[in-house]
Design a protein around this nucleic acid. Structure first.
Length: 588
RNA sequence: CGGGGCAUAGCGCAGUUUGGUAGCGCGCACGGUUUGGGUCCGUGAGGUCUGCGGUUCAAAUCCGCAUGCCCCGACCA
């Protein structure tokens, strides 16, 4: 492609809106343009880079038996009603009516459609296992798009769905994806880790997220350098410091005027936070058996915090929100002085560490008073005892006790064991060899293509611009002529461009009548892996300059050798990436 | 949804406090110059100042309402 014809332009300044490096560089270098919040166009350069990632995804999916197809973006409401997600999902899913007044949705994922296809096509265990996938536009009306392509509302996702006769089959396909995902991201030059994750709205029994580690990431991950334990903070477990064994003492009321926080309380009574109980009041939306709002009184030890995801999971709640002061008083509690003793119409959820800690200080459900020696089970009966405490940096690894390390990450992919959640709801069954029907066992696996591109850009850049891995770069070669139109240099560059193109090398040719500085700067900004400069300086010796974008070294290559040399360099760079594609075993 | 910020040429910004004919840099067009790191000189095009309403002789500027975008939080496969 000649730059004089490329539908693009570079910019010296990034738009003021762009905060993160990947966003700034992708816009400045002419890869993307924003149309609205979380809605972007990919310009030809960006489109080519996305296509490179998509091709890698296809190859790895095909390698584990995937069959590509395409499912529609617009779905009738019925299938979403069949699985219940029509009712569970809120404003994030776009809904509209067609001209006949039928309810339609823009699919934000495709379990429903897959399941509908499966119940039409799959009849026998002989047809299983199956793996189907597609690359499709998704619309999710995220309340807060941000960071360029990192978090958008419209995006392309690869989603695959495994169909199996049993758990063992699902497990095999899950493991195959686990490795395929590492292959995909490594081939894109992205260093990722897999962490255990919440299953969220997808339901299901096991899930991993593939996280690109970066300080701009929105998820907090807890990692163990001792044993390799890795989990999203949402579900991360940890070893809770044990409470000293003590015989339960009689409860005793103590005046604590103006003491409403754990910090105040520990100072006022001169006790460690681990000897206190912290009350958190939330209203949970619970849909089972019938949708209702439930007041929840959650208790963790004062040295810990509530993890809302864990709490919601313990409750099987679809939504949590903080309770208002009026709601807190309505159950007989007092904000700042809450105690599980004597409250009414509240579901009491107690962290397991609280249940195991004797003689805690809790509120007295009255202003300016606390109770000493509160004991779970003796003084109040919990409705649920579960792990609802949040793990944080420095907490002990649940597996080996080593202190956990916190990192930020961007979720570029995820894999879920769905089981029969959708196939049962929609009646997608197969017949076993005895002719008995069983629901198909399903898995679902996603990769955000644009987000992956942004993460690659975020990880591969320097002060001058992008530095693409050769596997993702929109072109392999940036060819520059430093001569004006009609010069020898340009005539030779024209010839090289034709030869490279004919040889199947992907080349972007800067044939513009611009000064050398402009061309070099744009080449650095656009970030193609190899740069070939045709100019008088080299031509005097019959050579052109060759430079890797990721290195300061330059070499002069005789004109006759440039094509084979380029091929060798491309192979070299591809080999460098290939060396990062390694086996990562799935533990457990 | 809560809190904060911004909106003037393609991009970055000044002008708003104190109302008086809309500016700068980059980019763009044309002419010349230059060709190994954003050359230099000249000429020029480009604006419903986010929108609607109000105050005023007069509004980018003051007031009100709306919209859009960004950031923090809530939210989120």
């Amino acid at each position: 492609m000649r730059m004089t014809q490329l539908f693009s332009r570079t910019q010296r300044d990034a738009p003021a809106d762009a905060q993160v490096v990947s966003h700034q560089l992708l816009v400045r270098a002419g890869y993307i343009r924003q149309l609205a919040a979380g809605i972007f166009s990919a310009l030809p350069l960006g489109f080519r880079a996305l296509a490179k990632i998509e091709q890698i995804v296809r190859e790895e999916m095909d390698a584990i038996g995937g069959q590509e197809l395409k499912m529609p973006v617009v779905n009738p409401a019925e299938v979403w009603q069949e699985t219940g997600r029509w009712y569970q999902i809120g404003a994030e899913m776009a809904r509209f009516k067609d001209r006949k007044d039928s309810e339609m949705v823009l699919a934000m994922t495709h379990e429903e459609v897959v399941t509908d296809l499966a119940r039409q096509i799959v009849e026998s265990y002989r047809q299983l296992p199956l793996l189907i996938y597609h690359l499709q536009t998704k619309w999710r009306d995220d309340p807060r798009p941000r960071a360029g392509l990192i978090r958008v509302r419209e995006f392309t996702m690869k989603d695959s769905y495994s169909l199996d006769a049993d758990e063992a089959g699902l497990d095999a396909q899950y493991r195959a994806h686990y490795q395929a995902y590492f292959n995909i991201f490594h081939r894109c030059g992205l260093d990722v880790i897999a962490v255990g994750s919440d299953t969220g709205m997808m339901g299901g029994s096991l899930a991993h997220e593939f996280m690109a580690l970066t300080p701009i990431g929105e998820d907090t991950l807890l990692l163990c350098d001792g044993c390799g334990y890795a989990a999203n903070r949402q579900i991360a477990r940890f070893q809770k410091p044990a409470a000293p064994a003590e015989a339960p003492l009689p409860t005793e009321r103590v005046a604590t005027p103006g003491v409403t926080t754990i910090e105040d309380l520990t100072a006022f009574l001169d006790i460690p936070a681990a000897k206190t109980a912290k009350a958190v009041f939330v209203i949970a939306e619970i849909s089972d058996p019938t949708p209702h709002a439930q007041f929840v009184f959650a208790v963790v030890r004062g040295d810990m915090d509530v993890n809302e995801t864990k709490l919601a999971n313990a409750l099987h709640a679809t939504e949590l929100r903080p309770a208002t002061e009026a709601e807190i008083r309505a159950i007989g509690a007092e904000p700042g002085y809450g105690s599980p003793i004597g409250v009414r119409d509240a579901l009491i959820v107690v962290d397991d560490a609280v249940a195991a800690s004797p003689n805690l200080v809790a509120g007295a459900n009255a202003p300016d008073a606390h109770l000493r020696n509160v004991n779970c089970g003796r003084d109040y009966q919990p409705d649920i005892v579960a792990d609802i405490a949040a793990a944080g940096e420095g907490d002990a690894c649940p597996q080996c006790g080593h202190p956990l390390r916190a990192e930020r990450g961007v979720e570029v992919g995820n894999i879920f064991k769905l089981g029969t959640r959708y196939t049962e709801a929609m009646g997608a069954t197969y017949l076993d060899h005895e002719g008995k029907p069983h629901p198909i066992v399903m898995g679902s696996y996603g990769i955000g293509i644009g987000r992956a591109l942004a993460c690659v850009a975020e990880a591969h850049n320097d002060e001058y611009g992008l530095v693409w891995p050769i596997t993702v770069a929109p072109y392999q070669i940036h060819l520059l002529t430093l001569g004006p139109p009609g010069s020898d240099a340009t005539a030779i560059a024209d010839r090289l461009y034709a030869e490279m193109t004919a040889a199947g090398v992907e080349v972007l040719y800067d044939d513009r009548n611009q000064s050398p500085g402009v061309k070099f700067n744009d080449a650095d900004l656009i970030g193609l892996p190899l740069r070939v400069t045709v100019a008088k300086r080299g031509l005097k010796q019959g050579a052109v300059e060759l430079k890797r974008r990721d290195s300061a070294e330059r070499e002069f290559v005789p004109l006759d050798d440039i094509l084979p040399t380029l091929r060798a360099r491309i192979a070299e760079m591809e080999a460098e990436i290939a060396a990062t594609v390694v086996e990562i075993p799935l533990e457990a």
